[in-house]
Protein backbone atom coordinates (compact mmCIF):
# COMPACT_ATOMS: atom_id res chain seq x y z
CA UNK A 1 0.00 0.00 0.00
CA UNK A 2 1.22 3.46 -0.86
CA UNK A 3 2.09 5.02 2.49
CA UNK A 4 1.47 8.42 0.97
CA UNK A 5 -2.26 7.68 0.82
CA UNK A 6 -4.06 8.84 3.94
CA UNK A 7 -7.48 7.57 2.92
CA UNK A 8 -9.16 6.22 -0.15
CA UNK A 9 -12.76 5.47 -1.11
CA UNK A 10 -14.62 4.26 -4.15
CA UNK A 11 -18.41 4.37 -4.23
CA UNK A 12 -21.24 4.09 -6.68
CA UNK A 13 -24.67 5.60 -6.29
CA UNK A 14 -27.83 6.08 -8.33
CA UNK A 15 -28.22 9.29 -10.30
CA UNK A 16 -30.92 10.52 -7.90
CA UNK A 17 -30.90 14.18 -6.92
CA UNK A 18 -30.84 13.34 -3.20
CA UNK A 19 -27.45 11.66 -3.74
CA UNK A 20 -25.86 15.04 -4.49
CA UNK A 21 -25.94 15.75 -0.75
CA UNK A 22 -24.73 12.22 -0.02
CA UNK A 23 -21.61 12.92 -2.10
CA UNK A 24 -21.05 16.17 -0.18
CA UNK A 25 -21.41 14.45 3.18
CA UNK A 26 -18.87 11.77 2.22
CA UNK A 27 -16.37 14.43 1.09
CA UNK A 28 -16.87 16.51 4.25
CA UNK A 29 -16.37 13.50 6.45
CA UNK A 30 -13.25 12.37 4.56
CA UNK A 31 -11.43 15.69 4.72
CA UNK A 32 -12.70 17.30 7.90
CA UNK A 33 -9.57 16.15 9.73
CA UNK A 34 -7.18 17.57 7.11
CA UNK A 35 -5.44 20.90 7.33
CA UNK A 36 -7.96 23.06 5.53
CA UNK A 37 -10.12 25.98 6.50
CA UNK A 38 -13.91 25.87 6.77
CA UNK A 39 -14.07 28.12 3.71
CA UNK A 40 -12.00 25.63 1.68
CA UNK A 41 -14.11 22.72 2.89
CA UNK A 42 -17.25 24.59 1.80
CA UNK A 43 -15.71 25.29 -1.61
CA UNK A 44 -14.78 21.63 -2.16
CA UNK A 45 -18.37 20.67 -1.25
CA UNK A 46 -19.66 23.12 -3.88
CA UNK A 47 -17.29 21.71 -6.53
CA UNK A 48 -18.41 18.13 -5.81
CA UNK A 49 -22.04 19.20 -5.78
CA UNK A 50 -21.63 20.80 -9.21
CA UNK A 51 -19.85 17.77 -10.71
CA UNK A 52 -22.49 15.28 -9.46
CA UNK A 53 -25.31 17.63 -10.52
CA UNK A 54 -23.80 17.83 -14.03
CA UNK A 55 -23.67 14.04 -14.26
CA UNK A 56 -27.36 13.80 -13.35
CA UNK A 57 -28.86 16.68 -15.33
CA UNK A 58 -26.52 16.70 -18.34
CA UNK A 59 -24.86 13.27 -18.50
CA UNK A 60 -28.03 11.31 -17.73
CA UNK A 61 -30.52 14.06 -18.71
CA UNK A 62 -32.32 13.74 -15.38
CA UNK A 63 -32.70 9.95 -15.43
CA UNK A 64 -32.54 8.60 -11.89
CA UNK A 65 -31.80 4.95 -12.65
CA UNK A 66 -28.19 5.27 -13.80
CA UNK A 67 -24.98 4.94 -11.81
CA UNK A 68 -22.42 7.56 -10.83
CA UNK A 69 -19.03 6.55 -9.52
CA UNK A 70 -17.07 8.72 -7.10
CA UNK A 71 -13.49 7.90 -6.16
CA UNK A 72 -11.49 9.88 -3.66
CA UNK A 73 -7.82 9.66 -2.81
CA UNK A 74 -6.69 11.66 0.16
CA UNK A 75 -2.92 12.01 0.57
CA UNK A 76 -0.88 14.15 2.94
CA UNK A 77 -0.67 17.11 0.61
CA UNK A 78 -3.41 16.62 -1.93
CA UNK A 79 -6.81 15.12 -2.52
CA UNK A 80 -8.11 13.90 -5.86
CA UNK A 81 -11.82 13.39 -6.44
CA UNK A 82 -13.00 11.68 -9.58
CA UNK A 83 -16.67 11.68 -10.58
CA UNK A 84 -17.69 9.48 -13.46
CA UNK A 85 -20.92 8.86 -15.36
CA UNK A 86 -21.74 6.66 -18.35
CA UNK A 87 -24.00 9.34 -19.82
CA UNK A 88 -24.22 11.16 -23.14
CA UNK A 89 -20.79 12.77 -22.86
CA UNK A 90 -19.73 16.29 -23.78
CA UNK A 91 -19.21 17.18 -27.43
CA UNK A 92 -17.26 20.39 -26.89
CA UNK A 93 -15.57 20.43 -23.46
CA UNK A 94 -14.12 23.92 -23.92
CA UNK A 95 -17.56 25.35 -24.69
CA UNK A 96 -19.19 23.44 -21.82
CA UNK A 97 -16.63 24.85 -19.39
CA UNK A 98 -17.13 28.46 -20.49
CA UNK A 99 -18.70 30.52 -17.66
CA UNK A 100 -22.31 31.38 -18.42
CA UNK A 101 -22.73 28.61 -20.98
CA UNK A 102 -25.71 26.39 -20.26
CA UNK A 103 -27.88 24.13 -22.34
CA UNK A 104 -30.74 24.26 -19.82
CA UNK A 105 -33.08 27.13 -18.94
CA UNK A 106 -32.75 28.80 -15.52
CA UNK A 107 -29.30 27.32 -15.01
CA UNK A 108 -26.52 29.81 -14.61
CA UNK A 109 -23.82 27.90 -16.45
CA UNK A 110 -21.60 28.26 -13.40
CA UNK A 111 -20.98 24.62 -12.54
CA UNK A 112 -17.58 24.32 -14.20
CA UNK A 113 -16.69 27.93 -13.28
CA UNK A 114 -17.19 27.08 -9.59
CA UNK A 115 -15.21 23.84 -9.97
CA UNK A 116 -12.26 25.63 -11.56
CA UNK A 117 -12.25 28.57 -9.16
CA UNK A 118 -12.63 26.45 -6.02
CA UNK A 119 -10.25 23.59 -6.85
CA UNK A 120 -6.55 23.71 -7.75
CA UNK A 121 -7.04 21.66 -10.90
CA UNK A 122 -10.00 20.37 -12.92
CA UNK A 123 -9.62 17.82 -15.67
CA UNK A 124 -12.51 16.67 -17.87
CA UNK A 125 -12.38 13.51 -19.94
CA UNK A 126 -15.40 12.77 -22.10
CA UNK A 127 -16.47 10.52 -24.94
CA UNK A 128 -19.72 11.36 -26.70
CA UNK A 129 -22.22 8.56 -26.06
CA UNK A 130 -19.96 6.90 -23.52
CA UNK A 131 -19.68 9.20 -20.55
CA UNK A 132 -17.70 11.80 -18.68
CA UNK A 133 -15.12 11.80 -15.91
CA UNK A 134 -14.35 14.97 -13.97
CA UNK A 135 -11.18 14.92 -11.87
CA UNK A 136 -10.97 17.57 -9.16
CA UNK A 137 -7.71 18.15 -7.27
CA UNK A 138 -7.09 20.18 -4.17
CA UNK A 139 -3.74 20.81 -2.52
CA UNK A 140 -3.80 21.00 1.26
CA UNK A 141 -1.98 23.85 2.85
CA UNK A 142 -1.11 25.19 -0.61
CA UNK A 143 0.60 28.28 0.80
CA UNK A 144 3.05 26.16 2.81
CA UNK A 145 3.73 23.92 -0.20
CA UNK A 146 4.31 26.95 -2.45
CA UNK A 147 6.64 28.57 0.09
CA UNK A 148 8.61 25.35 0.41
CA UNK A 149 8.95 25.11 -3.38
CA UNK A 150 10.13 28.71 -3.55
CA UNK A 151 12.98 27.88 -1.13
Amino acid sequence: MNENIYNKISMQFLSKSENVSLARIVISSLISTRDISMAELDEIKVAVSEAVTNSIIHGYRGREDCMIEMKVNVAAEQMIISIHDDGIGIDDIELAMRPGYSTLGEHMGLGFAFMTSFMDNVEVQSNVGRGTTVILSKNFNASVAQATQAI
Binding site: R24, D42, V46, S49, E50, T53, E106, H107, M108, L110
Partner: peptide, 13 residues
Amino acid sequence: TFIDSSGLGVILG
Protein backbone atom coordinates in the same frame (compact mmCIF):
# COMPACT_ATOMS: atom_id res chain seq x y z
CA THR B 1 -26.24 26.12 5.34
CA PHE B 2 -25.34 25.35 1.72
CA ILE B 3 -26.13 26.63 -1.77
CA ASP B 4 -24.72 25.76 -5.20
CA SER B 5 -25.45 26.90 -8.75
CA SER B 6 -28.83 25.09 -8.82
CA GLY B 7 -30.09 27.26 -5.95
CA LEU B 8 -28.45 30.41 -7.33
CA GLY B 9 -30.20 29.77 -10.65
CA VAL B 10 -33.58 29.85 -8.91
CA ILE B 11 -32.72 33.20 -7.28
CA LEU B 12 -31.62 34.62 -10.65
CA GLY B 13 -34.88 33.42 -12.21
